[in-house]
């Protein structure tokens, strides 16, 4: 049995079934992301693990013991909220030491642990500051330190980066991941940002309407999406209807629709590409190392990425080009 085990979890608010038969096994030290659109039940799953909501049925075990029915303050779980939720009346050091104080740790113990945590989050001399004196990113790091200080069994983060601006978001997510690796703490991270989930997770759970659609590594989720929803939600996708695929590419691959990632479509005839499509360039976005083109293929909009090369300028808008892709790069979507 894995360290954190969620099985057949059900939750309804009134008649609104929010989480449906949700199961997940998390190994010790694993970093799992719950990814899905707004309202799909990510927070609700997390809150049931934390003990703030009671499931209608199902089991949650941590380290082999069932926690359903236990109060949140008996679960030894660290939680980080989107809104930081630092105690405004306490200094940073008092915030970080709060959990230890409640556990009855000695003053010396608390001081030492608080210093250790503040060093870990890179704010060693902010101990005496009040939360309102810190930036959003700093506050969230303090919240992380506060959650980690009492050495919880599991760390839960509910969209901890959503309130921050883009630059801080990227640097802080890497920092969170580094700290999580260093401490080896089992972590569930909720986000609706697919790039965030792809970049820092060991495994991702893609949720849709209260159901875990697919569970897998970022590589699996991105390259072998098992449902149309996952394929569409994670990453960019060019979708061809089955009949279209046959008509424009001269391929016939059975039932259902096909999809191709932008990076699977090549400009010109690439070696190994067995499908060639005539196309007209409609948009050119120069992003630096990558150039993203949009082209019209017999009425279907196709996006593709090519690497920038100093000796080959990108095509102009309106240029007639050939696109190619390999049939094995096509993702078959359920009908």
């Amino acid at each position: 049995m894995s360290f954190l085990d969620i099985s057949h979890l059900e939750k309804a608010f009134g008649t609104n079934r929010v989480v449906k038969d949700f199961s997940l096994s998390v190994e010790k030290g694993e970093f799992i992301s719950l990814l899905g659109p707004s309202g799909c039940g990510k927070t609700t799953v997390l809150r049931m693990v934390a003990g703030f909501e009671q499931p209608n049925s199902g089991a949650i075990t941590i380290g082999g013991s069932n926690v359903v029915g236990k109060r949140p303050n008996q679960r030894n779980i660290g939680m980080v909220f989107q809104a930081y939720a630092l105690f405004p009346n306490l200094t940073v050091a008092e915030n970080v030491g709060f959990g230890l104080k409640i556990k009855g740790a000695s003053k010396a113990e608390i001081t030492a642990r608080v210093q250790e945590m503040l060093a870990l989050i890179g704010l060693p001399d902010k101990g005496a500051s009040y939360p309102f004196q810190l930036s959003g990113g700093q506050q969230q790091r303090v919240a992380l330190a506060r959650a980690l200080a009492p050495k919880p069994q599991v760390l839960l983060l509910d969209e901890p980066l959503s309130a921050l601006d883009a630059k801080v978001r990227v640097s802080l997510r890497n920092e969170i991941r580094a700290i999580q690796r260093e401490l080896g703490i089992t972590t569930i991270f909720v986000t609706h940002d697919q790039e965030e989930a792809l970049s820092i997770s060991d495994r991702i759970v893609v949720m849709n309407g209260g159901i875990a659609d697919q569970v897998g590594t970022p590589f699996e989720i991105y390259n072998r999406p098992s449902t149309r929803f996952v394929a569409n939600f994670v990453g960019q996708l060019n979708v061809f209807r089955a009949d279209e695929a046959g008509r424009i590419g001269g391929v016939s691959m059975g039932q259902g629709d096909f999809a191709a990632r932008p990076e699977a479509v090549h400009l010109g005839r690439a070696s190994g590409a067995d499908i060639v499509l005539p196309a007209t360039v409609t948009e050119v976005h120069f992003l630096g190392s990558v150039i993203r083109l949009t082209a019209d293929v017999a009425g279907t909009r196709v996006s593709l990425d090519t690497f920038n090369r100093a000796d080959a300028p990108p095509p102009e808008v309106g240029a007639v080009v050939e696109l190619s892709l390999a049939a094995r790069d096509l993702i078959q979507l359920g009908a």
């Binding site: 934390a50 003990g51 703030f52 109060r71 949140p72 303050n73 008996q74 679960r75 030894n76 779980i77 660290g78 939680m79 909220f81 809104a83 939720a85 630092l86 105690f87 405004p88 009346n89 709060f98 959990g99 409640i102 556990k103 919240a143 506060r146 959650a147 009492p150």
Partner: peptide, 28 residues
């Protein structure tokens, strides 16, 4: 103050109702 979130933060850190009222809510 965000009563609900502060309460949950304190709970996840192990605090019971009396502690939450005395150390988190009242001082604020």
């Amino acid at each position: 103050i965000d009563v609900a979130t502060l309460t949950e933060a304190a709970q996840s850190l192990g605090a019971g109702w009396a502690t939450i009222l005395a150390r988190v809510i009242l001082p604020n």
